[in-house]
């Protein structure tokens, strides 16, 4: 059983944390990852920094900019994955990337390096199912799960097409918009979780806009198997740019509080 499947089999729902490799610096990034893991992140999403992250809101975009200014390359992102793999051998890691990073290396090399670093899944945020044939064989060859995205605007027909190539877990986008914190969570989450649940046995994780313990609770109550928090954590890195100790404390405190929103449920 893969690390991702194993995690969802023994824990439900799970807490997924997001960080941009190289934020706030190449060296500091691994400390951030370790703090997140120590504070209770069940699965880590590591973003490869990219110059034009159009799916992301301002908070995560600024993290991409910080990482690139620090000189972070895809090699550094792979190195971070390798470090996390050593630190937490059982913890699943998903690489979150924009497609040009993959295209530039060539999908064969990208997936081979991702696998060698110890990544369990790859999520290519701007590679819809229509274009995903370009990477599918390499993901399969290297045993990497292809994490698929489903949006509130995805039609039922597209949901079927997307799910037929998905593995690991399915990332449900909670809202129409980019990543970023919101005061309130979209009211349509339960409907989306229910609609996709009918079509797949894969675990369903909800992200985009999830930034408070009550959001986490709402996602869990909607029947999701996982909740993904990005901007709310990334913002803490930005806010504590000159105070590393404070940053680690703030991250740990936030993760513990957010995790508190999770109520264990039996897997249906």
């Amino acid at each position: 059983m893969s690390r991702i499947a194993g995690l969802f089999a023994r824990k439900n729902p799970v807490f997924i944390g997001f960080t941009v490799a190289g934020d706030p610096g190449i060296g500091a990034s691994s400390g951030v990852a370790k703090t997140m893991i120590d504070a209770g992140v069940d699965l880590l999403e590591v973003a490869v920094p990219y110059s034009d992250p159009v799916a992301d809101g301002p908070v995560i975009e600024r993290a991409h900019v910080r990482a690139l200014r620090a000189g972070t390359t895809p090699d550094d992102a792979f190195a971070l994955v390798r470090e996390v793999r050593g630190y937490a051998p059982a913890l699943p890691v998903v690489l979150f990337t924009y497609y040009n990073i993959v295209h530039r290396r060539g999908p064969e090399r990208f997936f081979s390096e991702a696998a060698a670093a110890g990544a369990d899944g790859v999520l290519i945020v701007d590679l819809p199912v229509e274009e995903s044939g370009e990477v599918a064989p390499y993901a399969a060859r290297h045993g990497i799960d292809r994490i698929a995205l489903i949006a509130p605007t995805t039609s039922p027909e597209r949901q079927h097409a997307i799910l037929s190539g998905a593995s690991g877990f399915v990332y449900l986008i909670s809202l129409e918009g980019v990543t970023g914190e919101r005061d309130r969570l979209s009211s349509g989450i339960a409907g989306l979780v229910g609609a996709v649940r009918e079509k797949t046995d894969l675990p369903l994780a909800v992200g985009f806009g999830v930034s408070r313990p009550e959001h986490v609770a709402a996602v869990a109550a909607a029947g999701a198997n996982g909740v993904i928090v990005g901007s709310a954590l990334v913002r803490l890195i930005e806010e504590h740019s000159s105070d590393e100790t404070g940053m680690h404390e703030a991250l740990a405190t936030a993760i513990i509080a957010l995790r508190g929103g999770l109520v264990p449920q039996s897997r249906t």
């Binding site: 819809p128 995205l149 489903i150 039609s155 986008i173 918009g177």
Partner: peptide
């Protein structure tokens, strides 16, 4: 060419 966009945009491109 092609359509290398986040899933959220696909419905708009199809429309």
């Amino acid at each position: 060419g092609g359509q290398y966009v986040p899933e959220t945009l696909m419905s708009a491109l199809i429309e």
